[in-house]
Computed example of a mutant assay.
Amino acid sequence: MAEAETTGSSARPHRKRSPVGASPGTLIADPSARQSALNLTLISPDDCKFVDDASLDDVAAACRKWPLIWLDCVGLANISLIEEIGKIFGLHPLALEDAVNTGQRSKADFFDDHAYFVLSMIDDAKTARYEQISFFFGDNFVVTFQEREGDPFEPVRRRIRVSNPSRLRHRKADYLAYALIDAVVDSYFPIVDATGDTVDRIEDELLASPKKHQIGQLHGLRRATNLLKRTLWPLRDALTALVRSDAAFISAETKVYFNDTLDHAVRLIETVESQREMMIGLIEMHLSLAQSRTNEIIGVLTIISAIFIPLTFLAGIWGMNFDPSASPWNMPELLSYYGYPIALGFMALVALMMVLFFRWKKWL
């Protein structure tokens, strides 16, 4: 959505559900899911390490040596791998089921020693493609599940690489989870800003010269904005749950940062709602301008027709070729020497008088 016209994409997230009657916590892979790959980030106050294509043995070993671990699982096809991750970190099976069944509504669930947070992110700005990303975090770990490659986390990774002092190096998993969630929320701002710029441009074009293609652009933008609004509203509630949580692994200081992310989400919602109302207004204005233009055209054609009605009447009368030699009542004007120019002059005078009358009545 670098160009906001692409916000008109009709792609919508669809939830994949477990089969009817399946046992709670059953993990079933989507046939279209990507193969799973593990990226491991190991963090301590004095050092950090990044391991791509990590194995479960790497994860288990890191849990014993490093004070803070971020495991990023990209792709949800390997169910056995995801189950093993759940066992290593003690993740609740119902939350794991929600992580695998994509298309979840944004929410925050709390368990004894960890929390589950899920939201949607736009992983392709050009096509506005949504994907679900799930966060599990406890006292010393963060586990994220993504549907495919591509995320807004690179600034967070750079901050982890930065030498001391670094909050991400010295604080616990709740602050790392905040930084990752905040990155996803902030990734919406360029999309929303691009949409606003496009709406402003369409408004200027619409006021200058209404075109048929503008109404299609506005409907596409409104459809995409409605989808974005449905995505952001539950996110606000989920972030509110994090701010108000009494979980021991979420510190009071981190809640202040989560509250800042909540403010960002509220601002996004307000901006999207404002843009949506503006789009509706522009659609109505486009229809009004088109109707006004149609009325102007009909008015001009009506005036032209009104002018030619008496002229047609006169031409019809003088066109009745009755022989004046047969009777004094039969069209003596036909023998007039200057009959033709007099008739044309009289008709021109009638047309001029009608035009002046229409201007006096302000119909022209």
Rank of each mutant, 00 (worst) to 15 (best):
D57L: 01
A22F: 10
P13W: 04
P31A: 03
A62R: 06
P19C: 07
P19G: 08
V59W: 03
S36V: 01
K16I: 11
T26C: 02
R64A: 14
V20G: 15
A61P: 01
A54E: 14
S23E: 13
A11M: 13
H14E: 11
P45N: 00
L40H: 08
L27S: 03
Q35C: 07
D30L: 09
K16F: 14
A22E: 08
N39V: 07
N39W: 01
P24I: 04
K49L: 04
P45Y: 02
G21E: 10
S32A: 12
Q35I: 04
V20P: 15
P45K: 02
S36A: 09
A62S: 14
L40S: 11
V59M: 12
I28N: 12
A61R: 05
A60K: 10
S55H: 10
R64L: 14
S32K: 15
P19T: 06
A11Y: 13
A37R: 08
S23G: 01
V59K: 10
P31T: 06
K65Q: 09
R64V: 15
D46G: 00
D57E: 07
V59G: 11
S23T: 09
D46N: 01
V51Y: 04
V59P: 07
R17W: 06
N39M: 06
R34G: 07
D58C: 10
R12W: 00
A37S: 06
L42G: 07
D57A: 08
L56I: 11
R34W: 03
S55K: 05
P45C: 00
W66M: 04
D58G: 04
R17Y: 12
F50T: 09
A29N: 00
K49D: 08
R17I: 04
A22G: 01
I28L: 13
S32M: 09
W66S: 09
L27N: 01
Q35V: 05
L27H: 00
L27K: 03
N39C: 09
A62G: 07
R64F: 12
A60N: 02
A33Y: 09
G25S: 00
G21H: 04
S36K: 04
D30K: 08
L56M: 12
K65L: 02
S18Q: 13
T26V: 12
F50N: 12
P13N: 06
A37E: 12
K16A: 06
A11D: 14
K49N: 08
S32Q: 12
A22S: 15
D47G: 00
D30Y: 07
K65N: 07
L56T: 04
G21Y: 03
V51I: 10
A11F: 15
W66P: 03
D53I: 13
D52S: 14
S32V: 13
I28T: 13
C48S: 08
D53G: 15
A33R: 04
A54G: 01
H14A: 15
R17L: 14
A22I: 13
W66R: 01
A54N: 07
D53L: 08
A11Q: 11
S23W: 06
S36E: 00
D46Y: 02
S18H: 15
I43N: 01
D30M: 05
S32F: 09
P24M: 11
I28E: 09
P24A: 02
